[in-house]
Each structure stands twice: as structure tokens, then as C-alpha cells.
């Protein structure tokens, strides 16, 4: 039985979550102030999906990973300098906005079209990976719609673990309420997996891998097509950052239980 996969990871880029973000209303609608100045990272949930994809591909000879991203090309190029050192993949780049103030159906349409155009992609072996949520598009709906447009109806969200059984079926742990997992079984690809955090740590930088990846990344960036996302039908009633409260205190040599208790007390007020 051929247990190799064609894994497509959909991954946007987002401003580093620790940056000071501020929504503003511009001529073309809402945006994040100075977004292009801010350092960007691969959307954290999608990054986990990429690490899981690389791990799965490594364990199943003949598998291949593509990373499909709709992002401003210049920023994507910058993010790739780091991401390319983390896992082997081939980039499919679309040049467009990544700020989150876009219609997820439009984004899904563009991503699905790009995936359909990947040369040599075997849809019968396709696993569509991405984040179950997004730091930019919190609804986490884009991946599901990409899957639907590609005609993939076995969809799993909040995935923390994927195990390939000897018969080729997939055993999937999805997060459910109460901090528990639901175990699902699926006959095999094609399937959509929206990853939560998975269980893999961020891989260390591997310079050789980066150089290897860059041979395909640069041409992909150079031929990245510009994607216009018509927003005429889209109206934002209100945009706001979640309110936040921060209090800093330095402690040393304090037991984790004590720190946890203090945080709980602080949350309870």
C-alpha cells in the first residue's frame, strides 16, 4: 500500500503577536496601523501545521509538502528567510493582503485555485493542512472553505494528533470542550486538517535546509501573482483590539504552583 502523501499547508503571515497592533480605517477599509513596518511571522497555528506536515512527510517516503501563502510578497520573502530553515517544502506564493480584513471566502477561492494549479499534485493523496484558527482571521473559516472548494468533505478542526494506521486510515485527535479530545477515524486522504498546536516543538534552524528550500522559494516569489480581493460586498461595522491588562512583576525561585495560584488570584481580581 502506498502510504505517501501530498500535503498542502495553507499559511498566511501575521504581525508578530507581541507587537503593538492598532486597527485604523483607511481609504480601502480597515487595516492595521503601520502593518508593513512590523515584523511578521508565519501564522502560529499554520506554523504548527507545517511542522506536523514535515514530520508526517519524513515518516512516509515519497511524500511531499507544499506551503501555499497569500501574503504581501515582500513580507512573505522576509518570513521565508526563517521558515525555510525549519522544514522542507515547496512554496506556492500569492501576492495579496494578509492583514485579516478580507473576506475569508475570497481568500479561500484564491488559495483553492492556486492549489488546483500545483503541477503534479495527486488529489487522491492530498492532505490539506492549516491552522484551525488564525492570528489574523480569528474565525478560522478559511481552511474549511478551501477544502469545500476542492471537494474535500472529510474535515477535522482543532487537530492535535494525526496517526497513520497500517491500513492507511487516519486516526485524528480533535479538541473538544472540556479540555478533552475526540478520536476520529478517516479512511484516508483526501482530508482537511485544521491544526491546533499539535505536539511538535518549533524545529531548530537548519541552514542547509534553508539553502535547499531557497532554490524553489525565490522563483516562487518572483512568479507570485497578484491577487485582488474585491471587498465591495464587505462592510466592517467595527474593528477593535481585545482589551488587555498587563501587570509585570519579577519573581525568582518561586514554585510553579505558587506562580499559578497568584495568576489565578489576579484573574479573579
Amino acid at each position: 500500500m502506498n502510504l505517501s502523501f501530498h500535503i498542502v499547508v495553507c499559511a498566511g503571515i501575521v504581525p508578530d503577536p507581541l507587537q503593538t497592533l492598532e486597527p485604523v480605517i483607511g481609504d480601502s477599509g480597515p487595516a492595521l496601523k503601520n502593518e508593513m513596518l512590523l515584523p511578521a511571522v508565519l501564522d502560529p497555528w499554520a506554523a504548527h501545521a507545517l511542522y506536523e506536515a514535515a514530520h508526517l512527510a519524513r515518516g512516509h517516503a515519497g511524500s511531499k509538502v507544499w506551503l501555499v501563502s497569500l501574503s504581501p510578497r515582500a513580507k512573505l520573502q522576509q518570513v521565508m528567510m526563517t521558515v525555510a530553515q525549519k522544514a522542507p517544502f515547496e512554496l506556492v506564493a500569492l501576492d495579496g493582503p494578509a492583514g485579516g480584513f478580507t473576506d475569508s471566502a475570497e481568500v479561500a477561492g484564491a488559495l483553492a485555485a492556486a492549489i488546483e494549479a500545483i503541477p503534479g499534485l495527486d488529489r487522491s493523496r492530498l492532505l490539506l493542512f492549516g491552522g484551525w484558527e488564525s492570528a489574523a482571521r480569528g474565525a478560522g473559516t478559511t481552511l474549511a472553505m478551501v477544502g469545500e472548494r476542492l471537494g474535500i468533505f472529510d474535515q477535522f478542526q482543532g487537530v492535535d494528533e494525526l496517526r497513520v494506521e497500517p491500513d492507511g486510515s487516519l486516526r485524528i485527535l480533535e479538541r473538544v470542550e472540556g479540555g478533552r479530545h475526540q478520536i476520529s477515524r478517516c479512511a484516508g486522504p483526501p482530508a482537511v486538517l485544521g491544526w491546533a498546536t499539535g505536539s511538535l516543538a518549533e524545529p531548530p534552524n537548519q541552514p542547509q535546509l534553508g539553502m535547499q528550500n531557497m532554490r524553489t522559494i525565490l522563483p516562487a516569489l518572483q512568479r507570485a501573482q497578484s491577487v485582488a480581493l474585491p471587498a465591495a460586498e464587505l462592510r466592517f461595522v467595527r474593528v477593535a483590539l481585545p482589551s488587555q491588562q498587563r501587570q509585570t512583576r519579577i519573581v525568582r525561585d518561586v514554585a510553579a504552583e505558587e506562580v499559578a495560584r497568584e495568576i489565578v488570584d489576579w484573574i479573579r481580581g
Binding site: 528567510m81 526563517t82 541552514p207 534553508g210 539553502m211 531557497m214
Partner: peptide, 8 residues
């Protein structure tokens, strides 16, 4: 023509 690798 050149490669730049941050985080290294």
C-alpha cells in the same frame, strides 16, 4: 545572487 539567513 546572495542569501541572507536571519536567526543564525
Amino acid at each position: 545572487a546572495v542569501q541572507i539567513w536571519p536567526g543564525t
